[in-house]
């Protein structure tokens, strides 16, 4: 249906690549984090004239520092606070840092915790 590319890059390349997108006039669409059994994936997505491009970085655990891209795209600060609050990703230097107070959830970093898939549906 659509043109869509997902490229895997290393953390060190992140800022340079994002800056290149900015100069070419791409729009930051979203930043999201995916928890996989052993790693965490971050995706930075961009759009220009309906072409979709996504950068993927893979993190071993949450202790790895990730540089903030909010200096390049201001709108990234919301997404970065979100991945910090929900997954506990250590994002360094966010333009507006809520320090974990962005989502007032009962469980901190709730999306980074294991849940047991409900095999048989229970009815309490």
């Amino acid at each position: 249906m659509t043109q869509q590319t997902i490229t895997e890059i290393s953390i060190g390349d992140l800022l340079n690549k994002v800056r290149a997108f900015k100069y070419e006039g791409w729009r930051l669409v979203q930043i999201c984090c995916t928890k996989l059994p052993d790693v965490l994936e971050l995706q930075y997505s961009f759009d220009k004239d309906y072409v979709f491009n996504s950068l993927k970085i893979v993190l071993k655990d949450t202790s790895t520092a990730v540089p903030s891209v909010s200096g390049i795209y201001l709108s990234a600060f919301l997404y970065e606070n979100e991945i910090h609050d929900l997954f506990g990703i250590n994002v360094q230097g966010i333009a507006v840092d809520y320090k974990g107070e962005f989502y007032r959830t009962q469980v901190k970093h709730g999306f980074n915790q294991e849940v047991q898939p409900a095999g048989e549906k229970s009815n309490e």
């Binding site: 609050d85 507006v96 809520y98 107070e101 962005f102 989502y103 007032r104 959830t105 709730g110 999306f111 849940v115 898939p117 409900a118």
Partner: peptide, 17 residues
């Protein structure tokens, strides 16, 4: 300065269940 998070429901996490 905005702050949201008053009605976070965690629906994205529900997909695992």
């Amino acid at each position: 300065i905005p702050s949201i998070g008053f009605v976070h429901r965690g629906l994205e996490k529900l997909v695992e269940k």
